[in-house]
Write a protein that binds this DNA or RNA. Structure first.
Lengths: 296, 296
DNA sequence: CATTACTATAGATTTTATCTATGCCAAATA
DNA sequence: TATTTGGCATAGATAAAATCTATAGTAATG
Protein backbone atom coordinates (compact mmCIF):
# COMPACT_ATOMS: atom_id res chain seq x y z
CA UNK A 1 0.00 0.00 0.00
CA UNK A 2 1.27 3.44 -0.80
CA UNK A 3 -0.02 6.96 -0.81
CA UNK A 4 -0.42 7.07 -4.57
CA UNK A 5 -2.72 4.09 -4.53
CA UNK A 6 -4.85 5.79 -1.93
CA UNK A 7 -4.98 8.93 -4.06
CA UNK A 8 -6.03 6.81 -7.00
CA UNK A 9 -8.99 5.25 -5.26
CA UNK A 10 -10.04 8.63 -3.91
CA UNK A 11 -9.97 10.01 -7.44
CA UNK A 12 -11.99 7.09 -8.77
CA UNK A 13 -14.52 7.66 -6.03
CA UNK A 14 -14.65 11.34 -6.85
CA UNK A 15 -14.97 11.06 -10.63
CA UNK A 16 -16.83 7.74 -10.70
CA UNK A 17 -14.58 6.76 -13.55
CA UNK A 18 -11.20 5.14 -13.88
CA UNK A 19 -10.18 7.06 -16.95
CA UNK A 20 -11.16 10.46 -15.59
CA UNK A 21 -9.41 9.66 -12.35
CA UNK A 22 -6.32 8.67 -14.30
CA UNK A 23 -6.28 12.02 -16.10
CA UNK A 24 -6.68 13.80 -12.81
CA UNK A 25 -3.78 11.86 -11.29
CA UNK A 26 -1.58 12.37 -14.37
CA UNK A 27 -1.14 8.69 -15.04
CA UNK A 28 -2.52 6.46 -17.75
CA UNK A 29 -5.73 4.61 -17.22
CA UNK A 30 -3.80 1.34 -17.38
CA UNK A 31 -1.58 2.35 -14.49
CA UNK A 32 -4.42 3.50 -12.34
CA UNK A 33 -6.39 0.39 -13.10
CA UNK A 34 -3.51 -1.85 -12.15
CA UNK A 35 -2.76 0.06 -8.97
CA UNK A 36 -6.35 -0.01 -7.79
CA UNK A 37 -6.43 -3.71 -8.44
CA UNK A 38 -3.18 -4.19 -6.58
CA UNK A 39 -4.46 -2.32 -3.56
CA UNK A 40 -7.66 -4.32 -3.59
CA UNK A 41 -5.63 -7.49 -3.62
CA UNK A 42 -3.36 -6.37 -0.81
CA UNK A 43 -6.27 -5.39 1.39
CA UNK A 44 -8.25 -8.35 0.12
CA UNK A 45 -11.21 -6.08 -0.29
CA UNK A 46 -13.15 -5.23 -3.44
CA UNK A 47 -13.39 -1.45 -3.25
CA UNK A 48 -15.33 -0.64 -6.40
CA UNK A 49 -18.28 -2.19 -8.14
CA UNK A 50 -17.13 -1.73 -11.70
CA UNK A 51 -20.36 -3.05 -13.14
CA UNK A 52 -22.51 -0.34 -11.65
CA UNK A 53 -22.83 2.74 -13.78
CA UNK A 54 -21.62 5.09 -12.74
CA UNK A 55 -19.03 3.11 -10.86
CA UNK A 56 -19.73 3.01 -7.16
CA UNK A 57 -17.83 1.96 -4.09
CA UNK A 58 -18.80 -1.21 -2.32
CA UNK A 59 -19.87 -1.07 1.30
CA UNK A 60 -16.40 -2.14 2.38
CA UNK A 61 -14.92 0.20 -0.16
CA UNK A 62 -16.61 3.19 1.42
CA UNK A 63 -15.04 2.31 4.74
CA UNK A 64 -11.61 2.08 3.13
CA UNK A 65 -12.13 5.31 1.21
CA UNK A 66 -12.87 7.14 4.42
CA UNK A 67 -9.63 5.99 5.95
CA UNK A 68 -7.72 6.67 2.77
CA UNK A 69 -8.91 10.25 2.86
CA UNK A 70 -7.47 10.62 6.34
CA UNK A 71 -4.11 9.29 5.28
CA UNK A 72 -3.89 11.40 2.16
CA UNK A 73 -5.08 14.53 3.94
CA UNK A 74 -2.40 14.15 6.58
CA UNK A 75 0.24 13.45 3.97
CA UNK A 76 -0.77 16.62 2.17
CA UNK A 77 -0.60 18.49 5.44
CA UNK A 78 2.93 17.23 5.93
CA UNK A 79 3.94 18.44 2.50
CA UNK A 80 2.33 21.79 3.20
CA UNK A 81 4.21 22.04 6.45
CA UNK A 82 7.47 21.41 4.72
CA UNK A 83 6.74 24.16 2.23
CA UNK A 84 5.78 26.56 4.94
CA UNK A 85 8.90 25.70 6.91
CA UNK A 86 10.94 26.51 3.86
CA UNK A 87 9.17 29.80 3.40
CA UNK A 88 9.74 30.52 7.07
CA UNK A 89 13.41 31.14 6.47
CA UNK A 90 13.16 34.77 7.33
CA UNK A 91 14.79 37.23 9.63
CA UNK A 92 18.35 38.41 9.98
CA UNK A 93 21.52 36.36 9.90
CA UNK A 94 24.63 38.11 11.13
CA UNK A 95 27.44 36.28 9.45
CA UNK A 96 31.14 36.70 9.99
CA UNK A 97 33.65 35.30 7.52
CA UNK A 98 37.42 35.30 7.69
CA UNK A 99 38.98 37.15 4.75
CA UNK A 100 40.74 34.18 3.15
CA UNK A 101 37.44 32.40 2.88
CA UNK A 102 35.28 35.41 2.15
CA UNK A 103 37.17 36.32 -0.98
CA UNK A 104 36.20 33.12 -2.74
CA UNK A 105 33.32 31.41 -0.96
CA UNK A 106 30.92 34.34 -0.85
CA UNK A 107 31.09 34.56 -4.62
CA UNK A 108 29.78 31.03 -4.82
CA UNK A 109 27.10 30.94 -2.17
CA UNK A 110 25.73 34.43 -1.78
CA UNK A 111 23.61 34.84 -4.87
CA UNK A 112 21.94 31.42 -4.65
CA UNK A 113 21.18 31.89 -0.98
CA UNK A 114 19.73 35.36 -1.45
CA UNK A 115 17.52 34.03 -4.21
CA UNK A 116 16.43 30.95 -2.32
CA UNK A 117 15.59 32.84 0.84
CA UNK A 118 14.28 36.24 -0.15
CA UNK A 119 13.00 36.86 3.37
CA UNK A 120 16.37 36.27 4.94
CA UNK A 121 18.57 39.32 5.45
CA UNK A 122 22.28 38.63 5.53
CA UNK A 123 24.58 40.99 7.39
CA UNK A 124 28.09 39.97 6.53
CA UNK A 125 31.35 41.08 8.07
CA UNK A 126 34.91 40.14 7.27
CA UNK A 127 36.76 39.47 10.49
CA UNK A 128 39.75 37.52 11.69
CA UNK A 129 39.18 34.25 13.47
CA UNK A 130 39.87 35.82 16.86
CA UNK A 131 37.42 38.70 16.40
CA UNK A 132 34.90 36.33 15.00
CA UNK A 133 34.98 33.93 17.93
CA UNK A 134 34.63 36.81 20.33
CA UNK A 135 31.65 38.20 18.45
CA UNK A 136 29.95 34.81 18.39
CA UNK A 137 30.32 34.36 22.12
CA UNK A 138 28.97 37.86 22.71
CA UNK A 139 26.03 37.25 20.42
CA UNK A 140 27.12 39.95 18.02
CA UNK A 141 27.26 37.36 15.28
CA UNK A 142 24.90 34.45 14.65
CA UNK A 143 27.23 32.51 12.52
CA UNK A 144 30.84 32.37 11.48
CA UNK A 145 32.63 30.79 8.58
CA UNK A 146 36.22 30.08 9.44
CA UNK A 147 38.91 27.49 9.26
CA UNK A 148 38.89 24.74 11.85
CA UNK A 149 40.06 23.50 14.21
CA UNK A 150 39.67 26.42 16.56
CA UNK A 151 40.70 26.77 20.16
CA UNK A 152 37.37 27.56 21.79
CA UNK A 153 35.42 24.62 23.12
CA UNK A 154 32.34 26.72 23.80
CA UNK A 155 31.67 27.20 20.12
CA UNK A 156 30.28 24.43 17.96
CA UNK A 157 31.47 23.81 14.47
CA UNK A 158 30.16 21.97 11.48
CA UNK A 159 32.52 21.07 8.68
CA UNK A 160 31.45 22.56 5.37
CA UNK A 161 34.23 21.30 3.12
CA UNK A 162 37.91 20.62 2.96
CA UNK A 163 39.84 22.93 0.76
CA UNK A 164 43.12 22.09 -0.89
CA UNK A 165 45.96 24.57 -0.51
CA UNK A 166 47.99 25.08 -3.65
CA UNK A 167 51.45 26.42 -4.26
CA UNK A 168 51.99 29.55 -6.28
CA UNK A 169 55.21 31.24 -7.22
CA UNK A 170 58.55 30.93 -8.85
CA UNK A 171 60.96 28.06 -8.45
CA UNK A 172 63.46 26.48 -10.80
CA UNK A 173 61.87 23.07 -10.98
CA UNK A 174 58.40 22.26 -12.30
CA UNK A 175 57.46 20.57 -9.04
CA UNK A 176 58.70 20.63 -5.52
CA UNK A 177 58.81 18.43 -2.49
CA UNK A 178 57.22 19.35 0.79
CA UNK A 179 60.54 19.13 2.61
CA UNK A 180 62.03 21.68 0.24
CA UNK A 181 59.40 24.26 0.99
CA UNK A 182 61.20 25.81 3.93
CA UNK A 183 64.13 26.56 1.63
CA UNK A 184 61.99 28.83 -0.52
CA UNK A 185 61.51 32.56 -0.38
CA UNK A 186 58.12 32.45 1.30
CA UNK A 187 55.62 35.30 1.37
CA UNK A 188 52.63 35.14 3.67
CA UNK A 189 49.67 37.21 4.69
CA UNK A 190 50.31 39.41 7.65
CA UNK A 191 49.89 38.37 11.23
CA UNK A 192 46.35 37.72 12.36
CA UNK A 193 45.32 35.65 9.35
CA UNK A 194 44.87 32.12 10.50
CA UNK A 195 45.93 30.85 7.11
CA UNK A 196 49.39 32.27 7.83
CA UNK A 197 49.76 30.20 10.97
CA UNK A 198 48.35 27.12 9.31
CA UNK A 199 50.83 27.35 6.49
CA UNK A 200 53.74 27.88 8.83
CA UNK A 201 52.69 24.84 10.77
CA UNK A 202 51.91 22.65 7.77
CA UNK A 203 55.12 23.46 5.95
CA UNK A 204 57.27 23.59 9.05
CA UNK A 205 58.54 27.02 8.18
CA UNK A 206 60.87 28.63 10.70
CA UNK A 207 62.05 32.16 10.43
CA UNK A 208 62.18 32.89 6.77
CA UNK A 209 65.62 34.16 6.05
CA UNK A 210 65.34 34.65 2.33
CA UNK A 211 63.42 37.88 2.34
CA UNK A 212 65.43 41.04 1.62
CA UNK A 213 66.68 42.16 4.99
CA UNK A 214 65.31 45.62 4.55
CA UNK A 215 61.75 44.44 3.85
CA UNK A 216 59.22 43.87 6.62
CA UNK A 217 56.11 44.33 4.55
CA UNK A 218 53.56 41.57 4.65
CA UNK A 219 50.30 41.54 2.70
CA UNK A 220 46.78 41.84 3.95
CA UNK A 221 45.18 40.55 0.74
CA UNK A 222 46.07 37.85 -1.72
CA UNK A 223 46.12 40.45 -4.48
CA UNK A 224 48.97 42.32 -2.82
CA UNK A 225 50.63 39.10 -1.78
CA UNK A 226 50.73 37.76 -5.32
CA UNK A 227 52.25 40.98 -6.61
CA UNK A 228 54.99 40.69 -3.99
CA UNK A 229 55.59 37.06 -4.87
CA UNK A 230 55.90 37.88 -8.55
CA UNK A 231 58.18 40.86 -7.95
CA UNK A 232 60.57 39.04 -5.68
CA UNK A 233 60.38 35.65 -7.42
CA UNK A 234 59.05 34.12 -4.23
CA UNK A 235 56.50 31.55 -3.34
CA UNK A 236 53.24 31.38 -1.41
CA UNK A 237 50.28 29.15 -0.77
CA UNK A 238 46.69 29.85 -1.79
CA UNK A 239 43.37 28.21 -1.03
CA UNK A 240 42.01 26.25 -3.99
CA UNK A 241 38.77 28.20 -4.36
CA UNK A 242 40.69 31.45 -4.57
CA UNK A 243 43.30 30.05 -6.91
CA UNK A 244 40.59 29.04 -9.32
CA UNK A 245 39.56 32.61 -9.91
CA UNK A 246 43.04 33.73 -10.97
CA UNK A 247 43.89 34.84 -14.49
CA UNK A 248 45.31 32.21 -16.83
CA UNK A 249 48.67 33.88 -16.65
CA UNK A 250 48.79 33.52 -12.91
CA UNK A 251 47.41 30.00 -13.05
CA UNK A 252 50.49 29.17 -15.08
CA UNK A 253 52.58 29.98 -12.02
CA UNK A 254 51.00 27.23 -9.96
CA UNK A 255 53.50 24.67 -8.68
CA UNK A 256 52.96 20.95 -8.24
CA UNK A 257 53.63 19.55 -4.81
CA UNK A 258 55.29 16.17 -5.32
CA UNK A 259 53.85 14.26 -2.43
CA UNK A 260 51.26 14.92 0.22
CA UNK A 261 48.38 17.28 0.12
CA UNK A 262 48.02 20.52 1.96
CA UNK A 263 44.49 21.36 2.95
CA UNK A 264 42.42 23.27 5.41
CA UNK A 265 38.97 22.73 6.83
CA UNK A 266 36.28 25.34 6.29
CA UNK A 267 33.49 25.16 8.85
CA UNK A 268 30.43 26.87 10.13
CA UNK A 269 30.77 28.03 13.70
CA UNK A 270 28.09 29.09 16.16
CA UNK A 271 27.40 29.46 19.83
CA UNK A 272 24.69 26.99 20.73
CA UNK A 273 22.83 29.02 23.37
CA UNK A 274 22.07 31.75 20.86
CA UNK A 275 21.94 29.57 17.79
CA UNK A 276 19.27 30.05 15.18
CA UNK A 277 19.43 26.33 14.89
CA UNK A 278 17.08 25.62 12.02
CA UNK A 279 18.46 28.39 9.88
CA UNK A 280 21.99 27.25 10.56
CA UNK A 281 21.28 23.64 9.68
CA UNK A 282 19.65 24.65 6.43
CA UNK A 283 22.43 27.00 5.46
CA UNK A 284 25.01 24.36 6.28
CA UNK A 285 23.29 21.86 4.00
CA UNK A 286 22.87 24.45 1.27
CA UNK A 287 26.48 25.62 1.38
CA UNK A 288 27.82 22.07 1.27
CA UNK A 289 25.68 21.43 -1.76
CA UNK A 290 26.73 24.65 -3.49
CA UNK A 291 30.42 24.03 -2.96
CA UNK A 292 30.08 20.46 -4.15
CA UNK A 293 28.33 21.66 -7.30
CA UNK A 294 30.97 24.30 -7.85
CA UNK A 295 33.79 21.78 -7.61
CA UNK A 296 32.27 19.34 -10.11
CA UNK B 1 7.55 10.66 -0.11
CA UNK B 2 6.10 7.37 0.91
CA UNK B 3 4.81 5.73 4.02
CA UNK B 4 7.94 3.67 4.52
CA UNK B 5 10.11 6.76 4.62
CA UNK B 6 7.86 8.22 7.27
CA UNK B 7 8.09 5.04 9.29
CA UNK B 8 11.85 5.21 9.00
CA UNK B 9 12.16 8.70 10.42
CA UNK B 10 9.77 7.84 13.22
CA UNK B 11 11.94 4.87 14.09
CA UNK B 12 15.09 6.97 14.02
CA UNK B 13 13.42 9.47 16.31
CA UNK B 14 12.36 6.69 18.64
CA UNK B 15 15.65 4.84 18.84
CA UNK B 16 17.93 7.86 18.40
CA UNK B 17 20.00 5.71 16.08
CA UNK B 18 19.96 4.88 12.40
CA UNK B 19 21.19 1.35 12.82
CA UNK B 20 18.76 0.43 15.59
CA UNK B 21 15.94 1.97 13.61
CA UNK B 22 16.99 -0.08 10.60
CA UNK B 23 16.82 -3.28 12.61
CA UNK B 24 13.41 -2.32 13.88
CA UNK B 25 12.18 -1.65 10.36
CA UNK B 26 13.70 -4.85 8.99
CA UNK B 27 15.89 -3.10 6.47
CA UNK B 28 19.63 -2.56 6.36
CA UNK B 29 21.15 0.55 7.81
CA UNK B 30 22.23 1.58 4.33
CA UNK B 31 18.69 1.49 3.03
CA UNK B 32 17.28 3.42 5.93
CA UNK B 33 20.04 5.97 5.68
CA UNK B 34 19.42 6.51 2.00
CA UNK B 35 15.67 6.75 2.44
CA UNK B 36 15.92 9.29 5.22
CA UNK B 37 18.25 11.34 3.11
CA UNK B 38 15.92 11.10 0.16
CA UNK B 39 12.99 12.30 2.19
CA UNK B 40 15.03 15.16 3.60
CA UNK B 41 15.94 16.17 0.08
CA UNK B 42 12.38 15.97 -1.18
CA UNK B 43 11.06 18.06 1.69
CA UNK B 44 14.19 20.21 1.57
CA UNK B 45 14.37 19.98 5.33
CA UNK B 46 17.14 18.55 7.48
CA UNK B 47 15.23 16.36 9.90
CA UNK B 48 18.02 14.98 12.04
CA UNK B 49 21.14 16.45 13.53
CA UNK B 50 23.45 13.52 13.00
CA UNK B 51 26.31 15.15 14.86
CA UNK B 52 24.50 15.33 18.14
CA UNK B 53 24.86 12.27 20.28
CA UNK B 54 22.49 10.76 20.71
CA UNK B 55 21.05 11.83 17.39
CA UNK B 56 18.29 14.37 17.78
CA UNK B 57 15.67 15.88 15.53
CA UNK B 58 16.11 19.44 14.39
CA UNK B 59 13.46 21.99 15.20
CA UNK B 60 11.99 21.59 11.73
CA UNK B 61 12.42 17.87 12.01
CA UNK B 62 10.23 17.71 15.08
CA UNK B 63 7.47 19.43 13.17
CA UNK B 64 7.76 16.93 10.34
CA UNK B 65 7.92 13.99 12.73
CA UNK B 66 4.65 15.05 14.31
CA UNK B 67 2.93 15.09 10.95
CA UNK B 68 4.56 11.84 9.92
CA UNK B 69 3.11 10.18 12.98
CA UNK B 70 -0.34 11.26 11.91
CA UNK B 71 0.08 9.84 8.44
CA UNK B 72 1.49 6.53 9.63
CA UNK B 73 -1.11 6.16 12.35
CA UNK B 74 -3.92 6.63 9.87
CA UNK B 75 -2.31 4.26 7.41
CA UNK B 76 -2.09 1.65 10.15
CA UNK B 77 -5.72 2.29 10.98
CA UNK B 78 -6.63 1.65 7.37
CA UNK B 79 -4.79 -1.64 7.39
CA UNK B 80 -6.50 -2.60 10.63
CA UNK B 81 -9.84 -1.75 9.12
CA UNK B 82 -9.19 -3.96 6.17
CA UNK B 83 -8.33 -6.86 8.44
CA UNK B 84 -11.40 -6.33 10.53
CA UNK B 85 -13.56 -6.10 7.43
CA UNK B 86 -12.16 -9.43 6.34
CA UNK B 87 -12.90 -10.98 9.68
CA UNK B 88 -16.39 -9.57 9.48
CA UNK B 89 -17.38 -12.12 6.87
CA UNK B 90 -19.87 -13.85 9.10
CA UNK B 91 -23.48 -14.84 9.10
CA UNK B 92 -25.48 -17.08 6.86
CA UNK B 93 -25.40 -17.33 3.09
CA UNK B 94 -28.25 -19.21 1.52
CA UNK B 95 -26.89 -20.41 -1.76
CA UNK B 96 -28.74 -22.12 -4.58
CA UNK B 97 -26.87 -23.92 -7.33
CA UNK B 98 -28.21 -25.62 -10.42
CA UNK B 99 -27.31 -29.30 -10.54
CA UNK B 100 -25.11 -29.21 -13.61
CA UNK B 101 -22.91 -26.66 -11.94
CA UNK B 102 -23.16 -27.99 -8.41
CA UNK B 103 -21.73 -31.36 -9.32
CA UNK B 104 -18.39 -29.89 -10.31
CA UNK B 105 -18.02 -26.36 -9.00
CA UNK B 106 -18.83 -27.02 -5.35
CA UNK B 107 -15.99 -29.51 -5.23
CA UNK B 108 -13.61 -26.73 -6.18
CA UNK B 109 -14.81 -23.81 -4.14
CA UNK B 110 -16.45 -25.14 -1.02
CA UNK B 111 -13.49 -26.25 1.04
CA UNK B 112 -11.39 -23.12 0.45
CA UNK B 113 -14.33 -20.84 1.21
CA UNK B 114 -15.25 -22.65 4.41
CA UNK B 115 -11.65 -22.40 5.54
CA UNK B 116 -11.25 -18.77 4.58
CA UNK B 117 -14.47 -17.68 6.25
CA UNK B 118 -14.97 -19.83 9.32
CA UNK B 119 -17.68 -17.50 10.58
CA UNK B 120 -19.72 -17.77 7.43
CA UNK B 121 -22.39 -20.47 7.37
CA UNK B 122 -23.29 -21.78 3.94
CA UNK B 123 -26.72 -23.28 3.35
CA UNK B 124 -26.66 -24.83 -0.07
CA UNK B 125 -29.51 -26.18 -2.15
CA UNK B 126 -29.52 -27.77 -5.55
CA UNK B 127 -32.36 -26.28 -7.57
CA UNK B 128 -33.30 -25.76 -11.17
CA UNK B 129 -32.88 -22.33 -12.66
CA UNK B 130 -36.60 -21.62 -12.44
CA UNK B 131 -36.89 -22.55 -8.77
CA UNK B 132 -33.76 -20.68 -8.02
CA UNK B 133 -34.92 -17.43 -9.57
CA UNK B 134 -38.18 -17.65 -7.72
CA UNK B 135 -36.43 -18.26 -4.41
CA UNK B 136 -34.12 -15.31 -4.97
CA UNK B 137 -36.99 -12.95 -5.67
CA UNK B 138 -38.79 -14.19 -2.57
CA UNK B 139 -35.70 -13.77 -0.45
CA UNK B 140 -35.49 -17.46 0.33
CA UNK B 141 -32.02 -17.52 -1.20
CA UNK B 142 -29.31 -14.90 -0.92
CA UNK B 143 -27.36 -16.04 -3.88
CA UNK B 144 -27.64 -18.30 -6.86
CA UNK B 145 -25.10 -19.90 -9.12
CA UNK B 146 -26.56 -20.66 -12.50
CA UNK B 147 -26.00 -20.38 -16.17
CA UNK B 148 -26.66 -17.06 -17.84
CA UNK B 149 -28.30 -15.40 -19.60
CA UNK B 150 -31.53 -15.67 -17.67
CA UNK B 151 -34.93 -14.24 -18.47
CA UNK B 152 -35.56 -12.16 -15.34
CA UNK B 153 -34.51 -8.55 -15.50
CA UNK B 154 -35.10 -8.03 -11.80
CA UNK B 155 -32.21 -10.20 -10.84
CA UNK B 156 -28.63 -9.06 -11.23
CA UNK B 157 -25.90 -11.33 -12.42
CA UNK B 158 -22.17 -11.32 -12.31
CA UNK B 159 -20.22 -13.56 -14.63
CA UNK B 160 -17.96 -15.98 -12.81
CA UNK B 161 -16.43 -17.86 -15.70
CA UNK B 162 -17.16 -19.29 -19.10
CA UNK B 163 -17.20 -23.03 -19.28
CA UNK B 164 -16.53 -25.03 -22.39
CA UNK B 165 -19.00 -27.75 -23.31
CA UNK B 166 -17.41 -30.93 -24.55
CA UNK B 167 -18.71 -33.84 -26.58
CA UNK B 168 -18.89 -37.32 -25.12
CA UNK B 169 -20.02 -40.51 -26.77
CA UNK B 170 -19.66 -42.89 -29.60
CA UNK B 171 -19.30 -41.96 -33.24
CA UNK B 172 -17.45 -43.59 -36.13
CA UNK B 173 -15.04 -40.73 -36.77
CA UNK B 174 -12.47 -39.34 -34.31
CA UNK B 175 -13.86 -35.85 -34.65
CA UNK B 176 -17.10 -34.35 -35.75
CA UNK B 177 -18.45 -31.15 -37.24
CA UNK B 178 -21.02 -29.01 -35.52
CA UNK B 179 -23.42 -29.36 -38.43
CA UNK B 180 -23.30 -33.13 -38.12
CA UNK B 181 -24.38 -33.08 -34.49
CA UNK B 182 -28.08 -33.14 -35.19
CA UNK B 183 -27.60 -36.43 -37.07
CA UNK B 184 -26.35 -38.15 -33.94
CA UNK B 185 -28.21 -40.23 -31.41
CA UNK B 186 -28.38 -37.56 -28.74
CA UNK B 187 -29.06 -38.12 -25.08
CA UNK B 188 -29.85 -35.22 -22.81
CA UNK B 189 -30.76 -34.50 -19.22
CA UNK B 190 -34.45 -34.44 -18.62
CA UNK B 191 -36.65 -31.40 -18.97
CA UNK B 192 -36.05 -28.60 -16.50
CA UNK B 193 -32.28 -28.61 -16.75
CA UNK B 194 -31.26 -25.44 -18.44
CA UNK B 195 -28.24 -27.18 -19.91
CA UNK B 196 -30.65 -29.30 -21.95
CA UNK B 197 -32.23 -26.27 -23.55
CA UNK B 198 -28.89 -24.61 -24.12
CA UNK B 199 -27.55 -27.63 -25.93
CA UNK B 200 -30.64 -27.96 -28.09
CA UNK B 201 -30.31 -24.36 -29.04
CA UNK B 202 -26.55 -24.35 -29.56
CA UNK B 203 -26.54 -27.50 -31.66
CA UNK B 204 -29.77 -26.74 -33.44
CA UNK B 205 -31.20 -30.09 -32.47
CA UNK B 206 -34.79 -30.75 -33.54
CA UNK B 207 -36.77 -33.75 -32.48
CA UNK B 208 -34.31 -36.53 -31.98
CA UNK B 209 -35.46 -39.38 -34.14
CA UNK B 210 -32.67 -41.82 -33.47
CA UNK B 211 -33.72 -42.96 -30.03
CA UNK B 212 -35.40 -46.37 -29.83
CA UNK B 213 -39.07 -45.63 -30.39
CA UNK B 214 -40.09 -47.45 -27.27
CA UNK B 215 -37.76 -45.45 -24.95
CA UNK B 216 -38.79 -42.18 -23.33
CA UNK B 217 -36.39 -42.22 -20.42
CA UNK B 218 -34.21 -39.17 -19.90
CA UNK B 219 -31.59 -38.76 -17.19
CA UNK B 220 -31.59 -36.53 -14.17
CA UNK B 221 -27.86 -36.87 -13.50
CA UNK B 222 -24.80 -37.06 -15.69
CA UNK B 223 -23.96 -40.40 -14.13
CA UNK B 224 -27.15 -41.97 -15.46
CA UNK B 225 -26.89 -40.07 -18.69
CA UNK B 226 -23.43 -41.42 -19.42
CA UNK B 227 -24.53 -44.97 -18.76
CA UNK B 228 -27.35 -44.51 -21.25
CA UNK B 229 -24.99 -43.00 -23.80
CA UNK B 230 -22.60 -45.90 -23.46
CA UNK B 231 -25.34 -48.53 -23.63
CA UNK B 232 -26.96 -47.11 -26.71
CA UNK B 233 -23.81 -45.93 -28.45
CA UNK B 234 -25.13 -42.39 -28.35
CA UNK B 235 -23.68 -38.96 -27.77
CA UNK B 236 -24.10 -36.16 -25.29
CA UNK B 237 -22.51 -32.92 -24.15
CA UNK B 238 -20.89 -32.27 -20.80
CA UNK B 239 -19.58 -29.17 -19.07
CA UNK B 240 -15.79 -29.03 -18.95
CA UNK B 241 -15.44 -28.96 -15.18
CA UNK B 242 -17.55 -32.08 -14.87
CA UNK B 243 -15.83 -33.85 -17.73
CA UNK B 244 -12.51 -33.36 -16.00
CA UNK B 245 -13.53 -35.54 -13.09
CA UNK B 246 -14.39 -38.53 -15.24
CA UNK B 247 -12.42 -41.76 -15.20
CA UNK B 248 -9.68 -42.17 -17.78
CA UNK B 249 -11.77 -44.74 -19.57
CA UNK B 250 -14.61 -42.30 -19.99
CA UNK B 251 -12.25 -39.48 -20.89
CA UNK B 252 -11.19 -41.65 -23.80
CA UNK B 253 -14.71 -41.32 -25.15
CA UNK B 254 -14.44 -37.55 -25.53
CA UNK B 255 -14.94 -36.35 -29.08
CA UNK B 256 -13.25 -33.44 -30.78
CA UNK B 257 -15.46 -30.80 -32.28
CA UNK B 258 -13.89 -29.75 -35.56
CA UNK B 259 -14.76 -26.09 -35.61
CA UNK B 260 -16.37 -23.66 -33.23
CA UNK B 261 -16.56 -23.85 -29.48
CA UNK B 262 -19.58 -24.63 -27.41
CA UNK B 263 -19.65 -22.93 -24.06
CA UNK B 264 -21.93 -21.68 -21.33
CA UNK B 265 -21.67 -18.84 -18.88
CA UNK B 266 -21.70 -19.51 -15.18
CA UNK B 267 -22.75 -16.53 -13.09
CA UNK B 268 -23.65 -15.40 -9.64
CA UNK B 269 -27.19 -14.15 -9.39
CA UNK B 270 -28.84 -12.08 -6.67
CA UNK B 271 -31.74 -9.79 -6.01
CA UNK B 272 -30.37 -6.37 -5.21
CA UNK B 273 -32.92 -5.22 -2.64
CA UNK B 274 -32.01 -8.08 -0.33
CA UNK B 275 -28.41 -8.44 -1.38
CA UNK B 276 -25.68 -9.02 1.17
CA UNK B 277 -23.62 -6.90 -1.11
CA UNK B 278 -20.21 -7.03 0.50
CA UNK B 279 -20.35 -10.75 1.05
CA UNK B 280 -21.47 -11.32 -2.53
CA UNK B 281 -18.69 -9.19 -4.00
CA UNK B 282 -16.07 -10.99 -1.99
CA UNK B 283 -17.37 -14.43 -2.86
CA UNK B 284 -17.54 -13.49 -6.52
CA UNK B 285 -13.89 -12.44 -6.49
CA UNK B 286 -12.88 -15.54 -4.56
CA UNK B 287 -14.75 -17.95 -6.83
CA UNK B 288 -13.30 -16.40 -9.96
CA UNK B 289 -9.85 -16.77 -8.48
CA UNK B 290 -10.42 -20.37 -7.42
CA UNK B 291 -11.75 -21.43 -10.80
CA UNK B 292 -8.88 -19.70 -12.54
CA UNK B 293 -6.41 -21.52 -10.32
CA UNK B 294 -8.16 -24.80 -10.93
CA UNK B 295 -7.99 -24.42 -14.68
CA UNK B 296 -4.26 -23.66 -14.74
C1' DC C 1 -25.30 -4.75 -35.53
C1' DA C 2 -21.88 -1.36 -35.54
C1' DT C 3 -20.12 2.20 -32.84
C1' DT C 4 -18.66 4.27 -28.78
C1' DA C 5 -16.89 4.58 -24.17
C1' DC C 6 -14.63 2.42 -20.69
C1' DT C 7 -11.87 -1.01 -18.03
C1' DA C 8 -8.56 -4.96 -17.95
C1' DT C 9 -4.45 -7.21 -19.43
C1' DA C 10 0.19 -8.17 -21.59
C1' DG C 11 4.76 -6.97 -22.37
C1' DA C 12 8.41 -3.63 -22.35
C1' DT C 13 10.63 0.05 -19.99
C1' DT C 14 11.89 2.99 -16.42
C1' DT C 15 12.16 4.12 -11.79
C1' DT C 16 12.78 3.03 -7.11
C1' DA C 17 13.98 0.44 -3.13
C1' DT C 18 16.97 -2.60 -1.29
C1' DC C 19 21.21 -5.18 -0.43
C1' DT C 20 26.31 -5.99 0.05
C1' DA C 21 30.56 -4.11 0.61
C1' DT C 22 33.26 -0.49 1.82
C1' DG C 23 34.61 4.17 3.24
C1' DC C 24 34.81 7.58 6.58
C1' DC C 25 34.70 9.71 11.04
C1' DA C 26 34.75 10.20 15.91
C1' DA C 27 35.08 8.38 20.36
C1' DA C 28 36.98 5.09 23.33
C1' DT C 29 41.01 2.16 24.48
C1' DA C 30 45.49 0.26 25.00
C1' DT D 1 49.44 8.08 19.39
C1' DA D 2 48.22 4.21 17.08
C1' DT D 3 44.24 1.07 17.17
C1' DT D 4 39.96 -0.65 17.74
C1' DT D 5 34.98 0.05 17.86
C1' DG D 6 30.45 1.88 16.81
C1' DG D 7 27.85 4.33 13.77
C1' DC D 8 26.47 6.86 9.44
C1' DA D 9 27.30 7.63 4.38
C1' DT D 10 28.25 6.16 -0.24
C1' DA D 11 28.89 3.19 -4.49
C1' DG D 12 27.54 -0.34 -7.37
C1' DA D 13 24.70 -4.27 -8.25
C1' DT D 14 20.27 -6.44 -7.91
C1' DA D 15 15.50 -6.93 -7.19
C1' DA D 16 11.02 -5.05 -7.10
C1' DA D 17 7.62 -1.78 -8.49
C1' DA D 18 5.27 1.57 -11.01
C1' DT D 19 4.44 3.22 -15.33
C1' DC D 20 3.77 3.29 -20.30
C1' DT D 21 2.05 1.66 -24.98
C1' DA D 22 -0.80 -1.21 -27.33
C1' DT D 23 -4.55 -4.14 -27.42
C1' DA D 24 -8.30 -7.02 -25.90
C1' DG D 25 -12.57 -7.40 -23.74
C1' DT D 26 -17.16 -5.64 -22.28
C1' DA D 27 -21.25 -3.08 -21.82
C1' DA D 28 -24.12 0.57 -23.22
C1' DT D 29 -26.04 3.39 -27.28
C1' DG D 30 -27.72 4.73 -31.54
Amino acid sequence: MNIHQLEYILAVDQFKSFSKAADYCHVTQATLSAMVKKLEEELDIVIFDRKASPISATENGREILGQALQVVAHADALLDSSKSINRKMEGKVKLGVIPTIANSLLLIILKPLLEKYPALVFEIQEQTTQQLMKSLLEGKLDLGILSTPISSSDLETELLYKEKLVLYGHVQKASIKKAELSQQRFFLLQDGHCLRDQIIQLCELKKNKFLPVNLRFEANTFETLLNLVDDFQGITILPKLYAEQLSDKRKAAMIELEEGNLEREVSLCYYRPYAKWNIIKRLAADIKELVKEHLS
